Simulated assay, not measured.
Amino acid sequence: MKLLELVNYFRNGGSYDEFCQTQSLNQESEVVEIYMKQPFKIDNDLAFFEIEQTEGNYEYLSNGEKYFNLFDFYYFLDAIEESNNNDNKSLPNEQIAQLLYNYAINDA
Rank of each mutant, 00 (worst) to 15 (best):
53 Q>F: 12
37 K>R: 14
4 L>T: 03
30 E>G: 05
75 Y>I: 10
79 A>C: 11
103 Y>A: 11
103 Y>H: 15
107 D>G: 01
17 D>G: 07
83 S>T: 10
63 N>C: 06
78 D>E: 11
88 N>W: 02
16 Y>M: 10
26 N>R: 09
38 Q>N: 02
35 Y>H: 02
8 N>S: 14
95 Q>V: 15
83 S>I: 11
99 L>S: 15
72 D>K: 08
25 L>V: 09
24 S>R: 09
76 F>H: 01
82 E>M: 06
75 Y>L: 13
28 E>C: 08
38 Q>H: 02
103 Y>Q: 14
2 K>V: 06
75 Y>P: 00
3 L>A: 11
48 F>M: 11
100 L>T: 11
105 I>S: 04
61 L>P: 01
34 I>H: 02
73 F>D: 05
9 Y>A: 08
91 L>E: 10
78 D>Y: 00
16 Y>D: 07
37 K>N: 03
11 R>H: 07
90 S>I: 12
50 E>M: 03
61 L>R: 12
73 F>P: 05
13 G>S: 09
87 D>A: 11
49 F>Y: 08
6 L>S: 06
59 E>M: 11
78 D>N: 11
71 F>N: 09
40 F>S: 04
47 A>W: 02
106 N>D: 14
107 D>M: 15
52 E>V: 14
9 Y>P: 00
89 K>W: 02
42 I>P: 04
98 Q>T: 13
64 G>C: 05
5 E>D: 15
3 L>W: 01
96 I>E: 06
60 Y>V: 04
14 G>L: 10
68 F>V: 05
39 P>G: 10
93 N>P: 03
27 Q>V: 12
36 M>F: 00
106 N>Y: 12
2 K>F: 01
45 D>H: 11
91 L>Y: 04
39 P>L: 08
105 I>D: 07
62 S>R: 07
4 L>H: 00
103 Y>P: 02
75 Y>K: 10
45 D>G: 14
25 L>E: 07
80 I>W: 00
45 D>M: 09
108 A>K: 08
61 L>V: 14
88 N>S: 10
59 E>Y: 05
43 D>F: 04
104 A>I: 07
72 D>I: 03
53 Q>G: 01
48 F>G: 03
46 L>Y: 01
86 N>A: 14
101 Y>K: 13
45 D>R: 11
37 K>L: 03
74 Y>S: 14
38 Q>L: 06
98 Q>I: 10
80 I>C: 00
10 F>S: 08
80 I>T: 01
78 D>R: 06
104 A>L: 07
17 D>H: 08
1 M>T: 10
82 E>S: 07
92 P>E: 14
